[in-house]
Write a protein that binds this DNA or RNA. Sequence first.
DNA 1: CGATATAGTCGAAGCGCTTCGACGACGAGC
DNA 2: GCTCGTCGTCGAAGCGCTTCGACTATATCG
Lengths: 346, 346
Amino acid sequence: MAKIDEVAKAAGVSISTVSYALSGKRTISAETRRRIEQAVRELDYRPNAGARMLAGRRTNIFALTEPFRADTHAPAHMSFVLATSIAARRYDYDVLLLTDEEATAGMRRVASSGLADAVLVLDVAPDDERVGLARRLDIPSVFIGVPNDHEGLVCVDLDFEAAAALAVDHLAAAGHRSIGLVGHPPGAYLRSNFPPRVRAGFERRAAELGLDSSVERPEAGGTRGAAVRAAVEALLERGVTGLVLHCDDATHLAVLDALAARGLSVPGDVAVVSVGATFDTTSFQPPLDVIPLIPQASCDLAVDLAMQSMTPAPPAPGVRLIAPEYHEHGSVGEAADGSVAAHPPD
Amino acid sequence: MAKIDEVAKAAGVSISTVSYALSGKRTISAETRRRIEQAVRELDYRPNAGARMLAGRRTNIFALTEPFRADTHAPAHMSFVLATSIAARRYDYDVLLLTDEEATAGMRRVASSGLADAVLVLDVAPDDERVGLARRLDIPSVFIGVPNDHEGLVCVDLDFEAAAALAVDHLAAAGHRSIGLVGHPPGAYLRSNFPPRVRAGFERRAAELGLDSSVERPEAGGTRGAAVRAAVEALLERGVTGLVLHCDDATHLAVLDALAARGLSVPGDVAVVSVGATFDTTSFQPPLDVIPLIPQASCDLAVDLAMQSMTPAPPAPGVRLIAPEYHEHGSVGEAADGSVAAHPPD
DNA sequence: CGATATAGTCGAAGCGCTTCGACGACGAGC
DNA sequence: GCTCGTCGTCGAAGCGCTTCGACTATATCG
């Protein structure tokens, strides 16, 4: 717990010189800097956080609001929290966690007590109460996810619509004329911002290409995949030969099981593409083509934007969509009827 | 962003009176307090965090170190993070998250820069590098989990040994003479502190009661429960009629599937007890008896101890084990051979 | 009834840092 | 040779709060 005056004394310079050497905000001679750095090392000096906040008007802390509701899909959300935390550390920022009811109230508290320099908003609902609050806050915020009303906000996310459209493109290019989407349960469409966007992208592109399309949104868990099985049955009965999966890993498994139970092979009889997965789709049997949701991509960008928000030239409000990437793993084959269209785009 | 001097002026008192009224550290007349509180409300005053830290030598922040490694079981760990955060808020404390590589290095950084008042250590490995560091830190720490070498540390956890023993007691009381443990995969016994404790409690009590006992530790995931099925087969071949489950939810499902596939019913043919689950075991088919791991219990106690660590009378180092509780849901029946022992111990 | 305790309030001294303005030294330009 | 600008450094003024000691007014006691 050495203090800056001890460093100054050890290096034979004044307190302000130490401060400038450490912050780099004024030029310091190489020799002086060397002596200061050595003193810092020898004394294991680390500036006091409170003093730094008070004098520097900067906390080096991001508040991360992530409700962690009971129905939150833990693995995906944990990935985002982790990715945010890692991204923040690149700029020497720490992450303060606001969960549960405090996810909203804490934003106000933390902002007006000057505990954080910016707020990162996770697990964004379509109609999120943190939207209005963010506009009123006197520190910047960045949303990872896109609420319905996002005017004036800085948002970052995978382009889920484009991702779904890209999946449809690949199925269409392989000759599939009737395709199905296995989506999240209906409840998720109210609580989360992205399931509706996947669905919209899926249906729009299918319509543009003149494909038959259907959507099923089975409840996950429950009686051991029965709902998923029923959903798959329903899609197959409508003649679907290409499947887009936007759901959790257990539902992925259940879909593959249901297909196997019907004696259908992937990609022989049915083509399958996973969209927006944060988990590894290559460990399924068979490995699945995927347009992944990469937390690191969103979180890195979000943190960059948060940093920029604190400069004199903050980023313009608006939605930054990350372009989807298609990863082939062999789960999409030519449609059985042979009426194959052109090659997959790109 | 009103400041304390504005509150003082609005209430017609001095700055120090406002401070004392807000902290309660000196007596303030009812009338004065009323005027101050009103001014605080009208100005929406909130003390500046940095100034408070600097002057008060207290951050109102707990550092929470939780590595979130790649193989971390997300739902369980998220529950602990959430429970800790909620418990901390009860004392007006915020939680700063240290993940990944920073889980260790961040402890040192946060402690010596005075960014946190105490450290809460999650996801404790048997041989955890944070143990040595915690001893050297100049702020207190509380471990949620018990490392092998815990001398001088304050630790909190479910009494996993007693929990496993309690499960064995119930199986024995129902007349089961040959019992099996389905534990976490072998790797988890190195990374986590509690699987070995469950195993030890299981084997010790089985030996004390003169039961035949076997342990299987199937790899989870992978080829769709094949390892779990094999483990169950192996146990059944050894004549096991009572099963203790200490594993993730997917493995629970796989075990029940494997039993069903053999045409065995629960509790008719096989008795099943789940130990240390953080998930709901009543949604299985059938609902399972359980000795749950309740994150809230551990985290509340941990936060209480952390608070007490900052008083002039810190808690004595040592392991605080939380007594296990048995919840009956009908998955344990009398053993088939009829040689039933006494009733389950309370 | 004077000595003493107690309640209620205030002023001022920090807490450890950042940053502004100033100043000396020195090289460049005229 | 003198002025000017730049580089490197320093002193000191805060940042907004907590807390110590002191002071007044009132209550308590022998």
